[in-house]
Design a protein around this nucleic acid. Structure first.
Lengths: 284, 284
DNA sequence: TTGCTCCTCACGTCACGTGAGGTGGC
DNA sequence: TTGCTCCTCACGTCACGTGAGGTGGC
């Protein structure tokens, strides 16, 4: 019996942690779980008992699909409080995604049972609107989080300018956003009067800028329900436009009549989708 | 205006369905969504309006992580009823997994908050037990489903033999099962008396065979809670055994004192884990 | 005619899993 | 000494994503 604790072979460690050997190899490669000791001659990995707890944590985090780089960071946290904070933040994200997924299941069941409402489309003249806007290149999966950050900034900018919002916020979506899954998005909040560009320090904080949502004629429909069902409304609008050989006249715009800021129930959401058309031209 | 409906370019189709062009390419490659028409000269893909609904279904199924081969099968179903059945079956699976994931989140939160109970280990002599058993090579992720199928078969076999179960069912788990994530598993249900091998037709239905769970001395602990937290108990047992330089004497065995057949709440589950040890030998 | 859209092909990514072929340890 | 455990290395998998380099369509 020496003072040094017994070390475990990779096979023993696998049995204790319920992590397959090949997975442990991988975690060594990417430095998520580095063995306490590696035999210089044979290359045999040896793990300490103290690594069992870490390995079990990795297994749990991976079962919740935390990416390995994030797992590595969590394990490398300076103290337990910091580590727990990282993990709890991630768990909040997972919680939210699980709720979304459950809604998606419900939604798909409803779709299969033909419970979906008919989509009504009308043509409407949209007047130009003064607004405050933030523009960015956004990746599709990050859109929701981006909006959650951006609209409060816009509201703050409107308030800071001493103005009033003139209606619900909205967004313009470039074609690339849909075709390449990443592209320009303009988020705007309309104002009663046009704002001037920053003429005194702090007038429009952050990236917010005065903006005019251009006038347009558009095919318009109101989408009811969660954002990830928007494809149904887009499909109906696109079909409507294409069947009539109408020419698209600019980026699609959405207005958030009932937004996530107004309700927690995705089925209460109301989104106006406007598909601008060029009245002076037709497709052959 | 001809009788043929207008077809959509891939860009238009992407916009309507919210599927990126690159993803549509991939779905063409693997024949999940084959364009209605492909221009022989240019290779340009053309999609029909009728494909929009299918594409939206694919998007929804993929957002729920249905593998593409399954998506293809669902779309290829002979009629709508068959298609819906396939999808609903999958949705039930997803529902279950989402619930499990939510439990995993809760469990991890509890772990971080140190809410875990202490694990008590005792050494115990386990007598040999007559039983009925089914043996198979099982992959780790499929274990739960395999057990759900197998134990009812064993119960039926015991009943068919006119015998009585002599206690809760259990399993023997080979080392490869843990180390390679796939290996031999024996599921058994103990019987009051030894059964004879099939001596009349139908005596022991299916793959069920008479079996004797060998006697052993073991370090034993009772695990409380969901199966995917079993690594905690395995870690404690493994540490206990290794620290005392005990030699492992055969496959780990579990007994399902309170099993999923008895409760729907994973926190009510009780699993006895026995780690056999060889009393006549010691590690150096 | 000029952009713009679309094309193919090869390679990258993420987290492993799957052998092949070979060596170390009790 | 014989298995058994463990090793590395290269390649495969799944569902795309990322350029490079090039052509078609209005």
């Amino acid at each position: 019996m020496t003072g040094t604790e017994r070390l475990l072979t990779i096979g023993e460690f696998a049995k204790l942690t319920h992590l397959p050997i090949k997975t442990l190899h991988h975690y060594h490669d990417v430095e998520v779980l580095v063995p306490a000791e590696v035999d210089a001659q044979s290359g045999y990995r040896r793990y300490s008992f103290d690594q069992v707890a870490a390995a079990q944590l990795v297994r749990r985090l991976r079962s919740l699909d935390m990416p390995l780089p994030e797992v590595r960071q969590a394990l490398a946290a300076p103290d337990e409080a910091a580590r727990n904070q990282t993990i709890l933040t991630y768990l909040a994200r997972v919680d939210h995604e699980l709720t979304q997924a459950q809604l998606a299941v419900r939604s798909l069941r409803a779709l299969l049972e033909q419970q979906s409402y008919p989509i009504e489309i009308e043509h409407r003249r949209l007047d130009a609107m003064p607004a405050v806007a933030i523009e960015a290149s956004v990746e599709r999966p990050a859109l929701e989080a981006w909006c959650a950050r951006t609209y409060p900034l816009l509201d703050a900018a409107v308030a800071a300018a001493g103005a009033e919002p003139a209606g619900p916020g909205g967004g313009l979506y470039s074609d690339e956003f849909f075709e390449l899954a990443t592209g320009r998005v303009v988020a705007f909040v309309p104002t009663t009067t046009p704002l001037e560009a920053t003429d005194s320090v702090g007038r429009l904080p952050g990236e917010a800028k005065p903006f005019v949502v251009p006038a347009a004629t558009a095919a318009v429909a109101v989408h009811r329900g969660p954002f990830d069902e928007l494809d149904r409304t887009y499909g109906a609008l696109g079909r409507h436009v294409a069947e009539r050989s109408l020419v698209v006249g600019g980026p699609v715009r959405e207005r958030y009549l009932v937004s996530p800021a107004d309700t927690d129930d995705p089925y209460e959401l109301r989104t106006e989708v406007a598909w601008p058309i060029d009245e002076n031209r037709r497709n052959p």
